[in-house]
Amino acid sequence: MKFQERETDMTEFFGDLAADSHGTADDRPPLVFLHGLTYDRRQWGRVLHELAVADPGRRAVVFDLPGHGDSPLRDSYRSADVVGVVHEAVTAAGLDRPIIVGHSLGGALATIYAANHPARGVVNVDQPVLVGGFRDVLLRAEPVLRGPEWRQVWNSMLAGMQIELLPADVQELVRTATTPRQDLLLGYWGDLLATPAEELAGLRTRDMGAIRAKGATYHHISGNELAPAYRSWLESVLPEVAVTVLPGSGHFPHLTHPAEVAAILAG
């Protein structure tokens, strides 16, 4: 299979979001997949291939986030607005209380979604939801990010994602199946740039409390061991959290270990 291509040529639209739809509804929780910033739904091709083996016929819908892939641009990419668009698409697709699977930015959006809308669980692929030092890095880079040399900021982010650890074909996918644009970076990082760190931490703590209160599951998949302070926070706000580390995969464990990720989803 060529992972640069779509799993199917039959692009659908649910609400305002382009999607690939797989499987049929049954008693298994449907799966919703959200990719990371600047990427698109092609990122999930390997996992879907393995899921078809591990859990045949499972209902799954893979969305392009607003402004990505085949989904139209929007005036706002703030988290609350994007999550609202995703919820409209999930509803239009007829998905009942899905498990939301998100990589990177998609993992943060999946968390916010599950806190605010009906969901049975979250699978967060390599996205700490506390901003930590990342917000400080963005604030220092903001003048460049808003100027003509904005791509320097994105390139510096890529340099820290350990792409060199990935198999050659996956490296090609990561480097080519992406459309970095200044409006996406400024729009999707808008909350981080405009909101104090303490307020953001409070919002994410509240989200975890809401997820726990509704009895939804939460599984964090990482390419590296979680920072001790972050893991301590995560287990304090969500004691039932499951954490899986898939080493040697950098920021892309779903691409390097798709069978393991599919097994988690099928479990």
Rank of each mutant, 00 (worst) to 15 (best):
residue 44 W to Y: 01
residue 86 V to K: 05
residue 26 D to E: 15
residue 30 P to D: 07
residue 92 A to Y: 03
residue 82 V to A: 15
residue 38 T to Y: 00
residue 41 R to G: 09
residue 226 L to R: 10
residue 165 L to N: 14
residue 182 Q to V: 13
residue 207 D to T: 12
residue 109 L to F: 01
residue 223 G to E: 15
residue 213 A to K: 15
residue 49 H to F: 12
residue 100 I to R: 01
residue 100 I to A: 09
residue 16 D to L: 08
residue 267 G to M: 11
residue 25 A to K: 05
residue 54 A to C: 03
residue 30 P to Q: 04
residue 105 L to E: 02
residue 134 F to A: 10
residue 234 L to M: 11
residue 238 L to P: 03
residue 111 T to D: 05
residue 40 D to K: 04
residue 265 L to T: 02
residue 129 V to Q: 01
residue 250 G to N: 00
residue 1 M to R: 12
residue 222 S to R: 08
residue 74 R to H: 12
residue 239 P to Y: 11
residue 63 F to P: 12
residue 205 T to P: 07
residue 163 I to E: 01
residue 253 P to K: 07
residue 248 G to L: 09
residue 28 R to F: 07
residue 23 G to H: 04
residue 218 Y to M: 05
residue 242 A to R: 13
residue 234 L to V: 09
residue 99 I to M: 10
residue 188 Y to I: 08
residue 51 L to S: 03
residue 4 Q to S: 10
residue 99 I to Y: 01
residue 105 L to A: 13
residue 205 T to V: 14
residue 152 Q to M: 09
residue 209 G to L: 13
residue 257 H to R: 04
residue 5 E to C: 05
residue 44 W to C: 04
residue 76 S to T: 06
residue 68 H to T: 03
residue 175 R to T: 14
residue 116 N to D: 13
residue 201 A to E: 08
residue 210 A to F: 08
residue 77 Y to I: 03
residue 6 R to F: 11
residue 155 N to Q: 15
residue 95 L to M: 09
residue 122 V to K: 02
residue 89 A to M: 04
residue 105 L to H: 06
residue 59 R to D: 03
residue 156 S to Q: 15
residue 182 Q to A: 06
residue 120 R to Q: 15
residue 54 A to S: 06
residue 163 I to S: 03
residue 259 A to W: 06
residue 209 G to Q: 10
residue 41 R to N: 06
residue 196 P to H: 05
residue 143 P to H: 10
residue 94 G to H: 01
residue 246 L to T: 13
residue 86 V to D: 11
residue 23 G to T: 04
residue 50 E to Y: 10
residue 84 G to R: 09
residue 212 R to L: 07
residue 52 A to G: 06
residue 93 A to S: 08
